[in-house]
Amino acid sequence: MLTSMMEYATNHVGNPVDEECELENKLAYFEYKDEIVQIFEVYGQGTDSWFLKPSDDTVYKLNNTAYGVYLNQFDDFINYTKNKDNESKKVSYGTTILNDIAGGYTVGRGSK
Rank of each mutant, 00 (worst) to 15 (best):
A9V: 04
F77E: 05
Y67A: 02
T106Q: 06
D56S: 14
N86L: 15
T47W: 05
N99I: 02
E19N: 04
E7L: 14
K61L: 15
G14S: 03
K82E: 13
L98G: 02
V13G: 06
E31M: 11
Y8I: 08
D34V: 02
I36M: 01
I36D: 08
D48A: 09
E22C: 07
F77C: 04
Y93Q: 15
Q38N: 05
E19K: 13
N83W: 04
Y60V: 00
Y60G: 00
E41Y: 00
Y105D: 11
E87V: 12
S111M: 11
S49H: 09
Y80R: 03
N83S: 10
S49G: 04
V59M: 10
T96W: 03
L62Q: 09
N64M: 13
K89L: 10
V69R: 15
N79Q: 08
A102D: 06
E41L: 02
R109T: 10
E35K: 06
G104E: 09
N72Q: 11
C21F: 08
N86R: 10
D85V: 11
N25D: 09
G68K: 08
G104C: 03
Y8C: 06
V91W: 14
D57S: 10
D34N: 10
Q38C: 07
Y67S: 04
K61W: 15
I78Q: 14
Q38G: 00
V91A: 13
G104W: 11
H12K: 01
G104T: 07
I101Q: 08
A28P: 01
M6W: 01
Y93I: 06
V91H: 10
T3Q: 12
N63R: 15
S88W: 09
T58S: 05
K53P: 05
T58Y: 05
S55D: 05
N64W: 12
I97Y: 06
S49D: 08
I39F: 01
Y70A: 14
T96F: 02
F77M: 02
E19S: 04
S92C: 02
D57N: 15
T96L: 12
E31A: 11
N64F: 10
A102L: 02
D48H: 07
Y93L: 11
